[in-house]
Design a protein around this nucleic acid. Structure first.
Lengths: 315, 315
DNA sequence: TTAGCAAATGTTAGCGCATACATTTGCCCT
DNA sequence: AGGGCAAATGTATGCGCTAACATTTGCTAA
């Protein structure tokens, strides 16, 4: 008990005793057992994050932002990879709850009803990040993928007479992919255009997927004049494929992406895309959680982090 | 106690009782508290990974490999970002030990003496990943950065008459960066060449850093014929900068990287680089840890995962 | 019918910490 | 010198789980 006091309330211990205890702590290499502490305090100091994959700069940077922010309060991040499956996410959440994490960050808004039920029942702070859900589970830090992609596509429509194609990635269990496509369709419809099924492709989330997609699109007799890609990864893959095929971007085909990865600004041609504050989303998510854990419910639990259209050379 | 038995040894419980217990578990939404279980079992089921940053595809994929492999045994990954500082790494390790993680993965081999002391004292399985240390703390899953970069640079020397420059990133507390530079120097010296201080630059680990580096190198009156970059990120940044400046790669300047990120094979010109099995390093690290935790000390605790030189268009 | 015994179920204790309460120490003042 | 009191230190208890041991149940066989 005196040891506990030396560690948590040293002023309540005589300097002499304090010294003695500290010396012994040093000598025997005592390190307080945070597991046991968690048992009594009902606080683990661990925040869980469910991400679809770590192999994605966008998500990695959000995670990085969270990790850095949490480090300031001695909280640790526990990571689970759902591999873009809501079912897997559900299992991961179940396991996190059993581990009594203090709060949970979820990528996106595609949770199963059971996941939502469990989280509500557990009553811990939850942040959905990267998109804005219609009915949040708890708190949110993200940007509206629909609005952002719609804004970009509206710009493309003006510049390229409405002949816009789309290459996206699997929207199943992935609300970001789904909403970016929705934004694309919404922009077309708002301009009185009919979305062409043949111009909407779905490819794996990789440069190779983008390359494959653009080639398929260009092989069509009636090809679009510009293509909006669901992510910069697909967009860069598409551009590289065009360059390999001897096509000029944007002269032969214009291409735009989403995310504003570093490569977007560096490549030639530079990539027109949507900048989203990835790192800041992570930071904000962590701040929301920190506030909730401190007992103050944030004034604005749904943080729209905004976006910016980056018009560059590719479109 | 009967509940515990239903969960861990259902065959020791009458079917009727089992049903009844399960029904109640369902009804009250009981979820076993893994924190309490950890206290008794002295096992948390949590493995910690210290990474310099998550915003790096290379590291993210290693982590992804670990995460997936651990998921099979119900283990969770806890992540700490050291931000390329051994001192920060030490603090993170201290915190992980207090949390009684079952094992620790460390990126690279630049640990402080105190970190090593703590880990030895704690006696838990440790894997150093991504490089091969001279004196491992415990287990290892990586490739020799020195040997791999030396092999690549030797190839460059043959092709470009020994006029090879180098752009690397900060080697302080970063053994991978340090060893890649060592490999570069070793290759030159083995060929009887004198490393030129003016041809060895250090830049931030980003495409912008690579762009800046190559421009500085090309501005010199006596410029090298080829440049070895410490990572693909720097190399791609350098190539893009050359393209923007109207220089041809490899005709005007040859450029090679290290890591074989997806972009290396996709960009134009495609990037000559060193392929390292990032995902597999993560998987192997996790396997080594799983074995150690199962009580079997692996036959070969130091796993050299090898590498492959990818000769492509850029050099 | 009942002793005997295995299977099923229940009880105790302890993991390491920290809250609440109990005791001891040390010092001041009369 | 000794009572009184605050400060310092110590003890008991419980967090939720499970290993180890204790008791009860239910069935078999004489």
């Amino acid at each position: 008990m005196t040891v506990t006091r030396v560690l948590h309330a040293p002023e309540k211990v005589t300097p002499a005793t304090r010294e003695r205890v500290l010396r012994i702590i040093e000598a025997v290499g005592y390190v307080p057992d945070l597991v046991a502490r968690s048992l009594t305090s009902a606080r683990t100091g661990v925040v869980a994050a469910v991400v679809p994959t770590l192999s994605n700069s966008l998500i990695a940077e959000v995670t990085q932002g969270m990790s850095q922010t949490f480090a300031r309060h001695g909280r640790q991040l526990m990571i689970g990879a759902s591999n873009f499956s809501s079912q897997t996410e559900e299992e991961i959440v179940r396991s996190f709850l059993a581990r009594r994490v203090d709060a949970i960050y979820l990528t996106g808004t595609s949770q199963t009803p059971e996941t939502i039920r469990m989280l509500r029942a557990a009553g811990l702070p939850v942040v959905q990040g990267g998109n804005i859900p219609e009915t949040p589970i708890d708190m949110v830090a993200g940007t509206s993928n629909t609005i952002a992609s719609r804004a970009l596509v509206e710009g493309l429509i003006k510049r390229y007479r409405g002949e816009i194609g789309y290459i996206g990635h699997d929207p199943v269990d992935n609300d970001r992919a789904r909403d970016r496509k929705r934004g694309y369709i919404a922009a077309l419809e708002a301009a009185g255009l009919q979305p062409q099924p043949g111009w909407m492709l779905e490819r794996p989330l990789s440069m190779a997927g983008g390359a494959d997609g653009i080639m398929a699109l260009l092989a069509q007799p009636d090809r679009p004049r510009a293509v909006f890609c669901g992510t910069d990864v697909i967009a860069t893959g598409a551009i590289f494929a065009c360059l390999r095929a001897g096509l000029r971007v944007p002269d032969d085909i214009a291409i735009a992406g989403y995310d504003d990865l570093e490569i977007a600004g560096q490549m030639t041609p530079s990539l027109t895309t949507v900048r989203i504050p990835r790192f800041d989303i992570g930071v904000r998510a962590a701040e929301l959680i920190d506030m909730a854990l401190a007992g103050e419910r944030p004034v604005e639990p749904v943080a729209d982090m905004g976006f910016q259209i980056m018009w560059r050379d590719s479109a």
